[in-house]
Design a protein around this nucleic acid. Structure first.
Lengths: 319, 319
DNA sequence: GCAGTAAATGTTATCGGTATCAAGATACCG
DNA sequence: CGGTATCTTGATACCGATAACATTTACTGC
């Protein structure tokens, strides 16, 4: 910048102002300097600017990424969140620093202006850990009573309830829940499910399954059959599990949806093409991501931001 | 840091060295200073360090993200690339700055030490654009003759050839290719397919389909049927297309694989659970990501790095 | 006892921008 | 014509770290 100043015959600060489109500089001077900058391929040193402004215009997004078949944030679906976040932050002139839990100690995270945490961890441990950084922070996941921070998530409790009511309307009496309720989100779905069924005095059966795969879903239904447990409705907390459950049910010679109703969760694109087309609870990840981004930005600007729960909708197809 | 220095009764530079575990400071002093730093919650200012060291320890990853049903880098599968990249960079103490094409003008990208470009764009336009930044750059995608930069990609040509040989071994005579060859990678697959078939004097039929979805695959096969075109093998350049193709084929009353062989691409997890279990070409995205990361790191360190082509393997299941 | 060496710490300059305040030039007012 | 407001530009300091070189201290061997 000093060189550029000399070339233009002005001072550094004038160059700085010219490049920043400050109204303080004479339009002619500005044009001249900007032209010179382009011509010489001048590029601003972002680190220097960050230092001076005490702002990095960067938000760190921390994902939980375990190399396992367990439900990870790097699985296809929650990732759309990232798309929403990225879109919104970019529009506001911010950058996204992508980090994993392990890598979050990497220096650059500290330089971020804000933090978005995807998945608060089994026991909020992640939340506590990053709270120490003392940065504006927004968390994606299930809300809990004791939240000191801003949480954005979809209404898992409602998701469970909607499915329960659907089953009730169909006259189902022996519903089964398949999934792993040790994930806070899943736990909420289960609770919503249970509570809404309780209104009619129905108690669902919990089939705990840790893996969110087709095979796991098939296995769950086979296991029900072996144990000679009757059931006429299945709420799988993920579409893959639902697909597996449907397949196993059909294999057992029972009809879906005549004998057994099945509803999945996430409404993944493939679900509509599944045979039979899968009914599922849809949550708008994209919108969730955008909301997360807007909330951090607000916090960064010193404005208040509140937790928020996104609605979900039941997509009824053929199961 | 100045405050910390005063607290410890030493100079700033000693603090800097102590926190950096420099062997130049007395171990006792170091301990004392580090303890003080922890106690007072001191955090290094990364921007200042970046400025001084002229290094950000950050690599920008630029993805192509269009909000469309077209094959985007934000689709589930290529995203595993990001996992590999992230893992490797994190291990090396680097951070990942995630950017989209549009957002790549965002300041922070310039501060990166290196660039990873996922998808070089229809006509290498993206490559040229980011070349101007004059940063160490590595590109994921298909190699072309005129590459001035480092390209890492899986061997799409081999992928096509492997499928062709598979069909030949099965005695197939009328193969069809479904996909959109305007993507460089797909174009390579098609070429490998064509060339390997040519050895036996077989010419495949190209069914151009722009969307990589189940519906699109079904549509392709129906269209073949309507036009009364005979076929006994289908190579779909993506698993979803393959699934759709299989479904439509079965709907037409023909058997898979007795009448028609079908092979997909990507070997997505769901493929194995599909009915019938899908044969597919597998590429190791994770490994690709790690390789990309290692190459940029090498370039950043001033070491040479060469383009590389990852092997693929045909997973034969039941189709 | 003293030169010589190693260990520990300090002084100063610097990375490349921007905020603050000051100042010169020009226009406008009564 | 002095005084004030506006426009444009500049000098200086500063953001918070580290590199290079300087200095002090302790210890060694003869």
């Amino acid at each position: 910048m000093a060189d550029l100043a000399q070339l233009a015959g002005v001072s550094k600060i004038t160059v700085s102002r010219a490049l920043g489109d400050s109204p303080l500089v004479n339009p002619e001077t500005r044009e001249r300097i900007q032209a010179l900058a382009r011509e010489h391929g001048y590029k601003l040193n972002i680190s220097a600017r960050n230092l001076r402004l005490r702002r990095s215009h960067t938000v760190a997004v921390i994902v939980e990424m375990k190399p396992s078949t367990d439900r990870t944030m790097f699985d296809p679906y929650p990732l759309v969140l990232l798309g929403g976040i990225s879109q919104e932050l970019t529009a506001a002139g911010y950058s996204v620093l992508l980090t994993t839990r392990q890598g979050a100690s990497a220096a650059a995270v500290q330089a971020a202006d804000g933090l978005i945490l995807l998945g608060q961890g089994a026991h909020q441990d992640a939340v506590r850990r990053f709270d120490k950084l003392n940065l504006p922070m927004v968390v994606w996941g299930a809300q809990s009573a004791s939240d000191a921070h801003v949480v954005v998530g979809s209404d898992n409790r409602l998701g469970g309830a909607v499915v329960a009511r659907h089953f009730i309307a169909l006259g189902r009496r022996r519903p089964v829940f398949i999934g792993n309720p040790s994930h806070p989100e899943i736990f909420e779905r289960l609770n919503g499910f249970i509570d809404a069924l309780a209104v009619r005095g129905i108690k669902p059966l919990l089939m705990r399954r840790d893996e969110f795969t087709v095979d796991s879903g098939m296995d769950a239904v086979r296991s029900l059959h072996e144990r000679k447990v009757g059931f006429d409705a299945i709420f799988a907390c993920n579409d893959l599990l639902a697909m597996g459950a449907i397949r196993a049910t059909l294999d057992l010679g029972r009809s879906v949806p005549a004998d057994v109703s099945v509803v999945g969760y996430d409404d993944m694109p493939l679900g509509a093409s599944f045979l039979p087309p899968l009914s599922s609870v849809r949550q708008d990840w994209q919108e969730g991501g955008m909301l997360l981004a807007r909330k951090v930005l607000a916090l960064i600007e010193g404005e208040p931001a509140s937790s928020e729960c996104l609605p979900v909708s039941l997509i009824v197809r053929s199961t």
